[in-house]
Amino acid sequence: MRTSTKPSKLSLLWLQGATCNGNTHSFLNYPHLEAVLERLEILYHPLLPSRYRIGELEEVEKCHILVVEGGVREGVKRGNREFKELLELFIEKAQWVLCVGSCAVYGGLFGERGVALKGEEPTPFYLPKVINIPGCPAHPDWIATTLWAVVEGRELIRDHLLRPKEIYGYTVHAGCPRNEYFEWKVDAREFGKREGCLFYELGCQAPYTRGNCNQILWNEVSSKTGVGMPCIGCTEPDFPQENLFSTKTYMGIPARFPLGVPKRAYLTMTGVAKSFKIERLERRLFEED
């Protein structure tokens, strides 16, 4: 006979530093949010029904999961307290600390630093209980599945920046619908066309940016590179760089190469690819014969 026991809920506190709330809203986009929330007791979340109000956080005695969104920055207030004080208080109390979004992870656009990292450098809070989920914003699936792993008591393998490898072991380039154009080095020279690779001229950082955006898609339907917008490298410690809509080149050669690909290997391969003219890829996709 099957017995159904109600799984226990883990308590969660979602704390915001210097932020735009983008990760809060990204998480709300998770299509199966209700199922995830079934397993969590929300002590505090900026928008979801919560047990405590922001001014009552000092009353919270225990929290299993601390989610931090936003950068660490002097002067940021939550309720009547300094964000930094609350952060330190709950890092101490929590069993897991999930830093969601590039601000909480590295400092990003708004933080003086992240929680466990300042850029790539560890802070005093570089602790085994921290899981870093960078992105601007973090994809809802990254937040939800990481939470689920914690709820299930499973540990995720993380890299040296405490990021789950199953998310950040890929590059955004993997799965890009424009891959054929990258392979055969057919460049898009202007925006607004579904043909062509955005890496050579239009600033796309997908080949050296970590994340599985093009495998799980955004909002279940598309991705930036899918619609023709360059990847802006939002999961990386150096986000945002400058001149995001054009590729930095030296004498026509990209300043940065695909992740882990040596310069000579890259130039050899692209030189070979460029030597052929693939008629199909030079044409518009739906052009009539």
Binding site: R264, L267, T268, G271, V272, K274, S275, F276, K277
Partner: peptide, 11 residues
């Protein structure tokens, strides 16, 4: 074709 046979030099 193209730089195929001179790639080691051009690279």
């Amino acid at each position: 074709e193209g730089f195929l046979c001179v790639s080691p030099f051009v690279t």
